[in-house]
C-alpha cells in the first residue's frame, strides 16, 4: 500500500474517550507525525465546551498533503474510540467506507455499523502488560498506525518520543511498538484469511 501524506487527500480523524485516557495526547502525536515528521499538514482541535465536561474528551485531527482551510471535522474518515460514550456519540458521524478503531474491551458494539471497516484492540490490557495503564493511548496510536497505514511508522514513533517527557519515553515507545505489532499482525491475518476480511470490510 502506498503511504505518505502527499499521496493522500484530506483525511479527517476524530478520537474520543474519557478524560484521563490521553485522548488529546494521542491526537497531538498523530498530528505531529504528519505535520512535522512527515512534512504534510495537520490541524488539531479539541472539543471544549459542555461536552468536554463530565469525564468525556475528544479531539479532531485533519491531515492533508495541502494546507488545511476548514478547521473542524463533521464526518470523520477515521474514528478512534476508547469509551462506550464516545462510540455512541460519534459512530453515527463516521463517513461511509470509514475506519472505526475501538478499545475493544471498553466499547461493546451490539450492532456494527454497515459499510465501514472495524478494528478492535485491547489497548488497556496491553498497556497493563507493560506495567502502566496510562500508556493505553499510545498503544492505540501504534495500533492506529498499523491498521490505517497512512503515516510512516517511524514518523509516528518519533512523534511519540517527541511528545512525552524524557523519563517516560522508553515506556511510551514500548507501548507504541506493542500496539503497532498487534495491529500489523491483525492486518496480516486478515490478508491471509479472505473470509475474515469480508467480515471486516462489510459493504453496505
Amino acid at each position: 500500500m502506498q503511504r505518505g501524506l502527499t499521496k493522500l487527500g484530506l483525511t479527517e480523524i476524530r478520537i474520543g474517550g474519557f478524560g484521563g485516557q490521553g485522548v488529546i495526547l494521542a491526537a497531538v502525536v498523530i498530528g505531529k507525525a504528519a505535520a512535522i515528521f512527515e512534512g504534510g499538514y495537520a490541524t488539531m482541535t479539541q472539543s471544549f465546551g459542555p461536552e468536554a465536561r463530565g469525564g468525556s474528551s475528544s479531539a479532531q485531527v485533519i491531515l492533508s498533503g495541502d494546507p488545511i482551510l476548514y478547521p473542524y471535522v463533521a464526518n470523520p474518515d477515521i474514528l478512534v474510540v476508547m469509551s462506550q460514550e464516545a462510540y455512541t456519540r460519534f459512530s453515527p458521524q463516521l463517513k461511509p467506507g470509514g475506519i472505526l478503531i475501538t478499545e475493544q474491551e471498553l466499547v461493546r458494539i451490539d450492532q456494527a455499523p454497515t459499510g465501514i471497516r472495524m478494528y478492535g484492540v485491547p489497548a488497556t490490557r496491553l498497556a497493563e502488560e507493560l506495567g502502566r495503564k496510562v500508556v493505553l493511548n499510545i498503544v492505540m496510536v501504534g495500533f492506529f498506525g498499523a491498521v490505517t497505514n497512512m503515516l510512516n511508522p517511524d514518523n509516528l514513533r518519533q512523534a511519540v518520543a517527541d511528545s512525552v517527557p524524557p523519563a517516560m519515553q522508553k515506556l511510551n515507545l514500548q507501548a507504541f511498538d506493542k500496539g503497532f505489532a498487534y495491529g500489523a499482525e491483525m492486518i496480516q491475518g486478515l490478508a491471509e484469511d479472505k473470509d475474515a476480511e469480508q467480515l471486516f470490510a462489510l459493504e453496505s
Partner: peptide, 10 residues
C-alpha cells in the same frame, strides 16, 4: 478567536 487560539498546527 477561540478557534485560532485553540487550534494546534505546525
Amino acid at each position: 478567536d477561540e478557534c485560532v487560539g485553540h487550534m494546534t498546527e505546525k
